[in-house]
Every structure is written in C-alpha cells, then in structure tokens.
Design a protein around this nucleic acid. Structure first.
Length: 338
DNA sequence: AATTTCCTCAACCGCTCTAGG
DNA sequence: CCCTAGAGCGGTTGAGGAAAT
C-alpha cells in the first residue's frame, strides 16, 4: 500500500544534527560532491540518516554562502513583491535572493513578515473577519465557488490592498527603484521599458507592485507586472510543467477563457467561443458586482472604448486593481477545477 | 522563582515532478 | 507508453528558548 519509503525508517536517525554529523557530511561533499545520489550518500559516509535529510541539511545549512536571519528591507520587499505575484513558490522566491534558502524564506514569511504586514490582531480586524468566514468556506465545502479562494490568495489580496493604501511599512519601496526586485537575467531582455516606449516614458508614477498577468505563449506562462502600462516579466515557466496537462487552464472570467499580453502592451481576452477582444493596457476596466470580488458573478467589463486612454493615476489604479483580481480569480478557478 | 504561553526555525512528511530503463 | 527511483518542493510539526504571568 502506498509508496515505498525512501529509506529504512527504523534504522535512521531523526532530529537535530550533531556537529559530528555536520562535519562528516560537509567534508564528504566538499571533497567528492553529492555524486548525484542523495539516497546512497549517507551509507557511503557512515551516517545513519535518510538521504533526504542529508540533502536538506546541506541545502539549508551546510552549503557555502548561506545567510541566516537578518533579512534586509530590500529582501523584505522582494519577498513581499514576489509573494503577491506568485504566491508561496518559495524556491522561486529564494532564487532571487542569493544566500537564502526556500526554507528560511518560508519560515521568515510565516513567522515574521506576514505578521508585520497583516497585523496580529485578527479578531479585531474587520478584514480578518472576512478572512475567517472565507476560511470556513474553504474547510466546509469543496464546490467550485470562488469563495474557495486559498489563504495564500487572500493574503495576497490583503497585502495588495494594504500596499495600495500605502499602509505598508515598506511604502518606501514604492518610491525607490533601487529596492525593486531584480528580474531574472533570462527575463530582463524582454522587459518593456519607458525607454523603449516613449508613450510609457510620459507616465510620472511607476507602481512596482502592479499586476500579474497570465501570458500564454508557446506553452510558456509568464507572470508579468503591469506598472502604469510598463510591462515587466516577473517569472515564467512551462505550462505543461505547472499545470496538470489533463486539466485545461480555464480561467472562469465569465466571458473570457484566456488572457494574453503581447509585446505591444495589448491584452487579449480570449472568449470561450474562440473570438477575442483586444484591450490595450491602460484602458479602463472595472469589476462589476460591487466589492465582492470573490463572488461568483465577478466579471470584468470594459468601461469605455477609448483606445488611447492612458489617463490619470486613478484610472490606472482602478485598472491595476481589476487586473489583480482577475489574476487571483483565474488562479482560484484553475485550482477548483482540478 | 516557577510555571505557562508564545515564538522560532530546523527538520520531517508526503506529495509531485522528472529522468531513465 | 508505463513503471520506478530519486530529486525537489511546500506544508506542517515539535523541541527548545524567550517572554509573559
């Protein structure tokens, strides 16, 4: 029944590593490397440990250039930005922070950073009462209602809203490009900048925690930020790796099935029927159905037909908000269909 | 000073992904 | 294709220390 264990649990030591064990493991890997086989490694060096445990110990603690504790404001900002963008993909977030491990970042987020941002007096917070009721919905049913939104997505929404209101302790991050996350080198080349687009250069404010849009292209999904019209790819991966291929990615937008962003700042909303509507980023959108963005009837509506509406900050903020909700809603819809 | 509660973080668990046969 | 073993990942646990009572 079930999967065979990766090691003989009865003859394996658990719990904290002793200094002697650390030395054995580190010395061996320093000299010979892992040999590409963690499972066999503990036997080779006479450690009564599971191979997975050795791997974890090496990656999270013994590996050279590991930093522990003392997260800087810049690191906080990067973690926050990426968490809002991609959720709890700790390994991806860790890849943007040299010397940090996914485990470290995960612990730091769960124990400190999240509390710092969301506050700690849940029961006294009106928004958290919404959270609580939604959590109950999550645990009490498994229907396809958007109320099944994950805690992660809710947190991300709360964080985004707080940051929109400049209530975040990291508000300086918004005004300081130095603190903005560095893009992965592979993504940098495709970033659209104001230099490349004179129309964008005229935008005075730049909103680094903008919107993430699912960008389908040749089996790649890209999460991009739209910051006052400036499109900055944040992260990409192969759709076939990230999504179960037997389940089609079907954001339940009501009228749209797919959401695309091309290199000319155009966003395609693919209708279920195959036709598509083309919006240029910067057009006005609004969410209908009041403020209950997780409600089942949420849909996106194009407010005006103006194709050159790069307008005021308030319009752009509204656009941003709507798109954030779109993305979260799409993620939720995908999860609920699996 | 003793006890309880809270917090942190290293480590574990179980699942998915991937490569190779 | 299918199966299997190993790697990798994210969620969770629990020991130990700190803070509160």
């Amino acid at each position: 029944m079930g999967r065979a264990p990766c090691c003989d649990k009865a003859n394996v030591k658990k719990g904290p590593w002793s200094p002697e064990e650390d030395v054995k493991l580190k010395d061996y890997i320093d000299k010979y490397g892992t040999g590409g086989n963690w499972i066999a490694l503990p036997q080779k060096i006479g450690l009564k440990r599971c191979g997975k445990s050795c791997r974890l110990r090496w990656l999270n603690y013994l590996r050279p250039n590991i930093k522990h504790g003392g997260f800087s404001e810049e690191e906080d900002s990067i973690i926050l930005s990426l968490y809002i963008s991609i959720g709890s993909r700790w390994s991806i977030i860790a890849a943007q922070l040299p010397g940090r491990t996914d485990n470290d970042i995960k612990n730091y987020w769960n124990t400190k950073l999240k509390k710092k941002l969301l506050g700690r007096q849940k029961q006294m917070n009106r928004q958290d009462s919404i959270t609580d009721s939604t959590e109950n919905n999550i645990s009490n049913n498994n229907n396809k209602s958007p109320q099944n939104l994950s805690n992660s997505a809710l947190e991300r929404l709360q964080l985004h809203m707080q940051l929109q209101n400049l209530q975040s302790p990291f508000s300086s991050f918004y005004n300081n490009p130095i603190l903005w996350p560095k893009l992965h080198p592979l993504l940098q080349s495709t970033t659209t900048t104001p230099d490349q687009n004179p129309k964008l250069a005229s935008q005075e404010s730049f909103h680094p925690l903008g919107v993430n849009v699912d960008h389908h292209n040749n089996n790649n999904i890209k999460l991009a930020e739209i910051n006052n019209g400036v499109i900055s790819p944040l992260y990409s991966e192969n759709v076939e790796q990230s999504l179960n291929p037997t389940h089609e990615f079907q954001p339940n937008f009501g009228f749209s099935q797919d959401l695309r962003l091309d290199n000319h700042n155009n966003m395609d909303l693919m209708n279920r029927g195959g036709s598509k509507e083309l919006f240029q980023v910067g057009n006005e959108f609004e969410l209908t159905n009041g403020s209950s963005w997780w409600s089942e009837e949420v849909e996106l509506e194009r407010k005006t037909t103006s194709s050159s509406s790069w307008g005021s900050a308030s319009v752009l903020d509204q656009t941003t908000e709507g798109m954030v909700m779109l993305q979260d809603y799409a993620q939720m819809s995908y999860h609920s269909t699996v």
